Computed example of a mutant assay.
Amino acid sequence: MTPRTTGTTGRGQAPCHHGEILQGVFRDGAGRPCPGLVTLPMAGPGSSAVFTIRPGTDPQALTVAPAARTKAARAAALAVAECARRSGLPPSGGELRLAGDIPVGLGMGSSTSDVIAAVRAVADAYGVRLPTGAVARIAVRAELACDPLMLDGRPVLFAQREGRVLEVLGAALPPLLVVGCDLGGGAPVDTLALPVREAGEADVRAWERLRALLRRAVAAQDARLLGAVATASARRGQRVLGHPEFEALAAVARRVGAVGVQIAHSGAVAGVLFDAARAAAPGLPYQVRGCLDALDAHGIPAARVFATPGVRVRAYTPISPSHPAEELLWTSTSRSR
C-alpha cells in the first residue's frame, strides 16, 4: 500500500462481543498452560475512531477525546511508531477522537474495541495495512490483555494476555439466537478487584475437555453441544464471579428449552442461548418470548436480543410487537433487515 502524505485523517472501526463462550487455562502448542478465551461475537454496538496526523509534532504530542480513553491513546502512540516504521514516514503526534455505544464495565470488550478502532485509524492515516497479529500485539501492550475483536468474529481460542491465537476452531459458530441480560443490575465490574484463583492441573484438564467439546460443536454446527460447553464454563466462572442470579438464569434456560447460558467472565453480561438452526426456527419466537417473561419474573430484565453472524434474524420476528418483551425482539430483528 502506498504511504499517504502526513497531515491526513484516518478512520477505524471495531465491534464488541457478548462475553465468553469458554474461558480458562489451556495448553498451547508447546504444552505450556496459557490463559485463553472464546468470545461470543455480536453485531451492532462498536467503537469508531478518527486520527489526524499533525506533521512535524513530537510523536508523544497525541491528544485523545474523550480524555479518559487512555488505553486507546497508548495504542494510538504505539501504532504511530509501528506505522511510521512500515511506511517510511516520520512519526508525528496527532489527534484521536473516539465514539461508540458499547456499555462500559459489562465485559463486552469496550476498551479493546476502542483500542482496535484507534489502531486502525492510525494505520489508515499512514496508509498502512497492519496484519491482525500486529494489531493484537499493540492491543496487549496498550491494555495488558485484549479480546480477539481484531479477528472480526471468527471462532478462535485466543490467548488474551499474549495476543495470539491458540487454535482456530472453525469457520463459524453454530447458528444461535441470544437473549442477553445484565446481571447485578448492570453495575460495572472492577475486574482488578476480583479474587485471583490459581489454576491447578485438574482445572487445566477440565478446560481442555471443554475445548475439545467446543471444537466438535463448531465442526458439527451443534448448537446444543456448544450450549453445554458455555454453561459448564459459566458455572466454573461463578467460583470467582459469584453472580447471585446465575442459578435462576440457568433454570430459566432449562425451562424454556434453550441450549444453555453464557456469561462474561470479566463482567456482568450474560446470555441465554437458543438453537437458531432452520429445524428449530418455527417455535423459536415463542421460546424467546417465554424466556423474556421468565427473566423479567426473576428480576433479570433482558437488555438485548441478537443472533450470531449469518443467521437471518428477521425469521424470528414475533407475532405482535405490542408486548414490551416482544417489542425488544421486534426492534432487534428489525435492525437486521
Rank of each mutant, 00 (worst) to 15 (best):
A30Q: 06
R27N: 12
I116N: 12
A251G: 11
G237S: 03
T6I: 11
R216Y: 00
A270R: 06
A294M: 13
Q13Y: 02
S110E: 06
L149K: 01
R129T: 15
L225C: 06
Q221R: 07
V259F: 09
P195K: 05
V156G: 11
A220E: 15
T39K: 07
I116K: 08
A65C: 02
L173N: 03
G46C: 11
A223Q: 10
C181M: 13
K71T: 12
A206W: 04
V240Y: 00
G107T: 00
H298I: 03
G44Y: 01
V256D: 03
V119S: 15
L273N: 02
G88K: 04
A84C: 13
A219V: 06
I53Y: 07
S320I: 13
Q221N: 03
V122L: 08
Q238G: 12
L173G: 03
G180M: 15
V218C: 07
T6M: 01
A84L: 13
A171T: 01
A250Q: 12
R137D: 01
Q23A: 09
R314M: 11
A73R: 10
F51S: 09
T63E: 14
V256Q: 01
S113Q: 01
A230G: 05
L98V: 06
H265I: 10
A84S: 14
L78I: 01
A276Y: 06
C83D: 08
L130P: 00
L213A: 07
P174E: 14
R11I: 06
G24E: 02
G24I: 05
L226T: 02
V252Y: 11
R161P: 00
G24K: 13
V38S: 05
S334E: 09
L192S: 05
P318C: 11
A206G: 02
Q160L: 07
A123S: 13
V80F: 03
P15I: 13
D58K: 01
P15V: 14
G46F: 14
Y126G: 11
G12K: 05
G153A: 01
V196D: 14
A159D: 15
G29E: 14
G283A: 14
E95N: 11
L177Y: 10
A139C: 03
L37N: 07
T39Q: 08
F158V: 05
F246H: 11
D124Y: 06
H18D: 06
P321F: 03
P195Y: 08
L106R: 15
V64N: 02
V119Y: 14
G290A: 04
R289L: 04
P309E: 03
D275C: 04
R120E: 10
L273I: 01
D124N: 04
L78K: 08
P318Q: 13
G184C: 10
A268Q: 15
V272I: 15
I102Q: 03
R312D: 15
Q13F: 04
R86N: 12
L328R: 08
I319W: 09
L273H: 02
A81G: 09
R205Q: 13
R304P: 02
